Simulated scan of single mutants.
Amino acid sequence: MQTSLLNIVGGTAIALGCAAAQAEPITITDVAGRQVTVDAPVERMILGEGRQIYLLGALQPDAPFEHVVGWREDFSQADPDSYARYAAKFPELEEIPTFGGFKDGTFDVEQAAALSPDVVLMNLEARAATEDAAYDDKLAELGIPIVYVDFREAPLAHTTPSMRLMGELLGEQEAAEAFIDFSEAQMARVTETIAAAEPERPRVLVDRAGGYSEECCMSFGPGNFGEYVEIAGGSNIAAGIIPNTFGSLNPEQIIAADPQQVVVTGGNWEAYVPGGDWVGVGPGADMDAARAKLEGLTERTAMTGIAAVANADVHAIWHQFYNSPYYFIAVQRLAKWFHPELFTDLDPEATLRELHERFLPVDYAPGYWISLKDD
């Protein structure tokens, strides 16, 4: 039985007897504030969200799937362009067993147990559902610990400790610190300039997944992209309306706020909304198609007469910056849109290219953003 389980993951896992001989128990504090004891370095892990590979890829770029024995099937659907690039270089990912979600109650504890993981990495927003369904108790009875990480609910507060946690679990502390140093240095290029200049802040609407549905408009409150806007020198019009990270604005609220900048988050969501009006930015995106869809979104009722549309200050940016450790790239791009005169020497695309060259296992491809002000 053990041999077949190892074959399932393309021979990338290491035999359990060998792993046990090398690993030692460590106690860590996860981002939920829980103390968890795990045998580390971890040899077998289940990813509670496939997009956790964004973190793993930066820690182990030569073999990001080496220790993954199961994962939730969301990466291929929510970010198919990145998935295709990883699959082309690491075809073994196609053989990794997939799971349903913790939040929707489709996770299979027995299937997870059969893979003998050392740890299950869970995203923080799934904690309540995990505990309600008693997944945590069931896994604990089997001696399988859950470790919570977060790069969505509070990315600015939790991405760094999440990266450090994963560095500890994998024995990749140096790689984790190198990534953290890079991200903090890139953030400082924005925060220090904004603090010194104290510029007038433009009113900004973040249109979350604009065109994904007919609803307009989903947005961000004081967290996530809403916080990115403030750091980048803007004023998020939803901050005083949406109390939590995610919520919605109605067209009347948007028109009354008269945003001077509109930022639409976009991606390739063909798996969810085939042929939808979403703006398909991301690695290798078709920029002509993205621009056409972005222009189409300005014709919605909520965009009537607002300053951003009149001045072509309407932009689209990769949605997954909200859900990855690469948020500092989004902050740089927003800052350059909001205050081009302050950031003439800042090149977010060069930063993104350097991120790929120094840390990530896949090559850089342009297409992560577009603006109606672009030539």
Rank of each mutant, 00 (worst) to 15 (best):
T3M: 15
L6G: 15
N7W: 15
G11L: 06
I14D: 13
A15N: 14
I28E: 03
D30Q: 09
P41H: 04
M45I: 10
E49K: 02
G57S: 06
D62R: 12
H67L: 14
R85G: 07
E94H: 14
E110V: 00
A113R: 05
D118H: 02
E131I: 09
D132I: 09
Y135R: 04
D136T: 08
D137W: 05
K138Q: 13
P145H: 08
I146V: 12
D150Q: 05
A154S: 14
R164I: 03
E168G: 11
L170C: 03
E172S: 11
E177D: 11
E192T: 13
A196P: 11
E200S: 10
P202D: 06
R203Q: 14
G210P: 02
S213C: 07
F225H: 12
Y228R: 03
A232V: 07
G233N: 05
I237S: 04
P243Y: 09
L249G: 11
P251D: 05
A256Q: 13
G284N: 00
T301Y: 15
M303H: 01
H315V: 08
H319G: 03
F328C: 06
A330G: 09
K336D: 11
F338V: 08
P340F: 05
T344K: 09
R353P: 07
G367L: 01
S371Y: 08
D374P: 10
D375F: 11
